[in-house]
């Protein structure tokens, strides 16, 4: 029993002692939370009156109105086209940008600027990029496509570069030792190790582009979002409901298809 009855003299420090910094930080976070609620004027009364508005909106939304289905369909088709074009080109570009951004394959003078570019692509929400493109290339689908290409690069190129940085370098060394050139090494030793993950990122990005393609229209970059926004502004809430139902079914159909795609790979 000697082990548990220490005979050592003196006061040993408890290794799990709470730090004052830790407690202070928590107090700070909670205080700021309450301050924010107060300064934005959030209270129960405001919430209840909001709920009232929501129920009027819902009343006017039902039954959904599909009378203008031609307008709906043309918006939907445009959204799909935007999603398709931007995903294919964005994913294709990301393949190369991702390789250039991988720190284990590229010297810093290549990977650092490329990573900076990718970070830039990620730093803005697609809505902000869409506004910039609408201002610079004009209203319509082209602005939407460019927006979603940038969004795809920001997401896939980054994840793809990280996937490459985690590969086993032994396989790379073995292929390099055969005298293969750099691009053959990438094709034979790098791609086999990361390709299935790349397909995963790509299907996820197509999913995200599909959703976003119905959104960029709100700022005038083409697709179903434009139709949705003008329906809101004209208080055609039953048509709004029809558009929302269409978007939901679009996403569900893709969800079903993407499970099939994943099964193939």
């Amino acid at each position: 029993m000697a082990g548990l009855n220490s005979i050592a003299e003196g006061h040993k420090k408890n290794p799990f002692k709470r730090s004052r910094w830790n407690i202070g930080l928590w107090i700070l976070v909670v205080t700021y939370l309450f301050y924010s609620i107060g300064s934005l004027g959030l209270n129960a009364e405001r919430f209840l009156s909001g709920i009232g508005h929501a129920s009027t909106l819902l009343d006017r939304m039902f039954p959904p109105n599909f009378e203008r289905w031609e307008l709906l369909l043309s918006g939907l088709v445009e959204s799909l086209e935007i999603a398709m074009i931007s995903s294919v080109s964005g994913i294709f570009l990301s393949l190369f940008i991702g390789i250039l951004a991988a720190r284990n394959l590229m010297p810093p003078w290549v990977s650092v600027p490329i990573r900076g570019f990718v970070a830039l692509c990620r730093s803005f929400h697609p809505v902000i990029i869409a506004i910039l493109f609408v201002k610079s290339v004009g209203f319509g689908a082209l602005a939407g496509i460019l927006t979603l290409i940038i969004a795809s690069i920001g997401f896939i190129a980054k994840l793809f570069a990280e996937a490459i940085e985690e590969i086993s370098f032994k396989q790379v060394e073995a292929i390099r030792a055969t005298g293969a050139n750099f691009s053959s090494v990438v094709i034979y030793a790098v791609m086999p190790q990361v390709f299935s993950r790349f397909i995963g990122f790509a299907t996820y990005q197509f999913d995200s582009n599909l959703r976003n393609s119905t959104m960029v229209g709100i700022v005038g970059a083409g697709g179903l979002g434009g139709t949705l926004f003008s329906a809101f502004q004209r208080f055609d809430y039953d048509f709004v409901a029809a558009i929302l139902i269409t978007i939901i079914s679009l996403i569900l159909v893709w969800e079903f298809l993407s499970t099939l795609v994943r099964r193939v790979f």
Binding site: K170, A177, G179, Y188
Partner: peptide, 29 residues
């Protein structure tokens, strides 16, 4: 390097490629 073939302790095969592709990869140089 083509003339100096390497054999590794941990084999260093490209695991997701077929055996045949691994053998043929010796020709990449």
């Amino acid at each position: 390097r083509r003339q100096l073939a390497m054999v590794f302790q941990e084999y260093n095969l490209v695991e997701r490629l077929s055996v045949m592709e691994n053998v043929l990869s010796g020709r990449l140089g």
